[in-house]
């Protein structure tokens, strides 16, 4: 096995991001979409930390901390929306949430 460099981490980040995209595109359940979104966040974070380590510059780690905080906020609002949708429709199938009556 050859030495692990920056490119290995970036490639892994790309794979993770694409898997997340795949989940967002294919899943119909709102929470499953949220789960896939978290994968994409993680891919970005992985790249940031890899850059921070190999450049080397602490700013990437700081940025990753911010991304985690924003992801927490995003997940909170997302789950609240999902619960609200569930209360009104009794399901969270995104393809069928298509009325504007609320």
């Amino acid at each position: 096995m050859s030495a692990i460099g920056l490119n290995h981490f970036l490639a892994l980040g790309a794979v993770l991001f694409c898997l997340g995209t795949y989940g967002v595109l294919t899943r119909r359940n709102a929470i499953a979409v949220l789960l896939s979104l978290e994968l994409m966040f993680n891919a970005v974070n992985l790249n940031l930390v890899a850059f921070a380590r190999f450049m080397p510059n602490l700013d990437g780690v700081v940025l990753a901390v911010f991304v985690i905080a924003v992801a927490a906020a995003e997940a909170t609002v997302g789950v609240a929306l999902v619960l609200s949708i569930y209360r009104n429709f009794r399901h969270i199938d995104l393809d069928q949430v298509d009325t504007m009556k609320g």
Binding site: E38, A75, T76, V79, V82, L83, Y86
Partner: peptide, 11 residues
């Protein structure tokens, strides 16, 4: 992740 699991259980 725990919050998402809760949401899965609740919905």
């Amino acid at each position: 992740a725990i919050m998402l699991l809760f949401a899965i259980m609740l919905t």
